[in-house]
């Protein structure tokens, strides 16, 4: 589904960085550098950020309530 609001392990709110992270990584920046810039030091937060995939755009196609594109 959507990516988690907080880090699974330590509970730090992470999702507010996600859009910036995604934008910068997609524009070709090294994820390691972006994570350092965002101030995510612990490896639990870094793993949550790196490993989360937002699949809500794929799932939303199967929405049963309203079908309008």
């Amino acid at each position: 589904m959507m990516i988690p609001v907080r880090c699974y392990t330590c509970g730090k709110p992470l999702i507010q960085y996600y859009e910036e992270f995604k934008k910068r990584v997609e524009s070709g920046e090294d994820p390691e550098k972006v994570l350092d810039d965002l101030g995510l030091k612990r490896y639990c937060c870094r793993r949550t950020m790196l490993a989360s995939i937002d699949v809500s755009k794929e799932i939303i196609k199967f929405s049963t309530r309203v079908h309008r594109w």
Partner: peptide, 15 residues
């Protein structure tokens, strides 16, 4: 909310 840019859910048109 402390942060304004936390995505909660996504909606299609009309939902």
């Amino acid at each position: 909310p402390v942060y304004d840019n936390i995505p909660l859910l996504s909606l299609l048109e009309g939902q």
